[in-house]
Amino acid sequence: MQAFEYAAPSIKQQAVALLGNTWEDAAVFAGGTDLISSMKDNLLAPKRLVDIKGIKELGGIDFTPAAVRIGALVTLEQLLAHPRLGREYPGIIDAAAGVTSPQLRSRGTIAGDLCQRPRCWYYRAGFGLLAKDKDGKPLVPNGENRYHAILGNQGPAYFVNPSSLAPVLIAIGAKVRLYNGSSSRDVPLEQFFVTPKSDAERENVLKPNEIVTDIIIPAIPAGERLSATYEVRQKEALDWPLAAAAVALRMNGGRVQSARVVLGHVAPVPWGAPDAEKVLTGKRITADLAIEAGKESVHQANPLSKNAYKVQLARVAVKRALLRAAQGGA
């Protein structure tokens, strides 16, 4: 691990000023659950760590009539412990509870969950984010791809987005607020994530001199608060989902007025499923409809050599998330 500077600013202007123009210059250090292990594994070697944990304005959960603001530093455990958030956005709670490690929940932050790097084992073994051999040939398509993407996987990226919270946050219309020292910009979370096309690109639009300051969620009128996340995990104890789905439903007279369905762990980005949403619109949620929506959500899936099973898991995740959300609404 390369020696690095450590800075612990107390206001966000200072934090951004301490960042650099390239990713090698500096890294934002919050929970550190991914950053530190990436540095130990020689995947990242920033010259400076900017510890933002002491910046008070990056914490807190605030409700206003129009929106909920969740500070970047709010931990998964704090999300779980927030009663109002749980009542109004149960899908967030489902997702946070799916991180079954108490250590990760206590230490890991909401922005860290969104910004963590992929878990692709080729990437983690040093073969690069796009996982290529020394001749530039991709390793994933003919390699051990059981956990890799089944959608958006035409290459060169085959990894899956690792975020637990992104699918539900996208489903409920969240934006992420990015700050560069002089101004902030709000980016719809679904546009925050991008599929890198080259080694020079990353998995999101964050620039090296920006930080995530807040997650902004639009307020939802009472009675329309239907959301859920369902993760298929092999283990109950700490384990990454094999596939996940989040849904948010706006209801009108027992029928779906509009729906958002977003899959996790199936593509290099959280994967919206507009065809499933169309199927749901105007209908009552039934088991059969949920099954149909599940099918529609992955009908364009194109699995790799060893991950066809994930198509089935994604279908089931959508079905179960829908039924769960519908139950929560009554």
Binding site: T100, R119, F127
Partner: peptide, 17 residues
């Protein structure tokens, strides 16, 4: 392809918790 063990860790070498 690479001859490597891909899960020499406690993350994807999964143990019962």
């Amino acid at each position: 392809i690479t001859g490597r063990m891909l899960n020499p860790n406690m993350e994807f070498y999964k143990l019962a918790g």
